[in-house]
Design a binder for these strands. Structure first.
Lengths: 209, 209
DNA sequence: CAATGTGAAGCCCTTCACAGCG
DNA sequence: CGCTGTGAAGGGCTTCACATTG
């Protein structure tokens, strides 16, 4: 293993491997080969080994990988061996649904609060998550060491909210608004674009691979 | 232009270009250069031209592209120049939120119904979208020419629902369940994996590019 | 002997640079 | 003259194939 650039595709796959390993662990499996992992995640054995090789040598030749050890290594690599504080801006349908998403909690993401402008919903709760008024966001981020922000507001407001988050010290943003967003280099940004995903489907259906 | 394999990244960008062009069109812009598009979508001019070149010659040298013509070409390419019928399975928080998502309607996706097993919510509506009982799904798909299915059920149920959808004749699936799903070659599948997206963020934060 | 770890080959996508054209 | 369209170069990710090792 030598230090080099790691493909984003590798990180995405590691995350999927991790979830699959957790399942195997629950089933009581002790050891697993790259071939078995590949089957479980619909990939190739060589790819699995290559992905892991970026970070070290985790296996035993002739045997495979220890399931729970490997999963521990991967969660460490992904940075989810401890908790992260998250807020969601936009407490409409999507924001509220995201705040209740089980998958976040299971993977160490702590949704602390929702923020919104609508006086109808400010002060209420989505499940156990409180909804605060938007102007309180900056101070909340600072006081609670919030590292990750999720954008679930309508497109026209997204950039302004992002700017405010960045100003407050947020390190990473997951954007669900259908707009191209700008952030400084030191802030991580990912876009989850629902309509774009649908359009990739329709293209492939229409174009018939 | 010659026929060849088109990168998925190109399709994703075309979808983003299209949304941006729609905005420019609304602002009354008639003509646009690859450079301006690149700025608006945070890309490069050469990339914009290359992406379009897969499908034809849409510009005028020395001038640029006609905004509304180009957008019409792109929506045609993406297969969204007409409507698509969609159902969502799982009327929990996420499924209900998706059924109300404005971005689907705006881009020609018609959400006809939700399906769920919970007798508490079957028979109700999410906004204007009715919630039907899960066993009615297959006949509904056939009777209403549903082409696209969205999976918003808990992970353990996802594969069974997908199999049923495929059996009923669905052509494309957008999967939100955190599980690796199998479909036959002729069915299009895309995964929107929320926790995976968060973990790419935490990796990048931890690893500090 | 079975399965890992890894250089090398292959392939695909992006970037470059400029010819072509309105 | 300016911007498109594109062959060629470059870079990066995946696949291959095998040497390595417990």
């Amino acid at each position: 293993m030598k230090s080099q650039k790691i493909p984003e595709a590798t990180i995405i796959r590691l995350s999927v491997y991790s979830r699959y390993l957790k399942q195997l662990e629950k089933n009581g499996l002790i050891t697993v080969s790259s071939g078995t992992i590949a089957e479980g995640v619909d990939g190739s054995p060589a790819q699995v080994r290559k992905d892991l090789a970026y970070f070290g040598e985790f296996g035993t030749r002739g045997v495979g990988y220890n399931v729970s050890d490997l999963n521990r290594y991967i969660t460490k690599i992904l940075g989810i061996d401890n908790k992260w504080n998250v807020i969601i801006v936009g407490a409409g349908n999507l924001g509220s649904a995201l705040s209740q998403y089980k998958g976040f909690d299971e993977r160490g993401f702590n949704v602390l609060a929702l923020f919104d402008n609508d006086p109808e919903i400010v002060g209420k709760k989505a499940g156990k998550i409180p909804v605060f008024s938007a102007p309180r966001m900056t101070s909340f981020i600072k006081e609670n060491n919030v590292e990750i922000g999720i954008i679930a507001v309508p497109a026209p407001f997204a950039q302004d909210i992002v700017d405010e988050m960045v100003g407050a010290g947020i390190k990473a943003i997951l954007n669900f608004a259908p707009r191209v967003i700008s952030v400084p280099d030191y802030v991580e940004l990912r876009n989850v674009d629902l309509a774009v995903n649908m359009e990739v489907l329709t293209f492939n259906m229409t174009f018939q691979k």
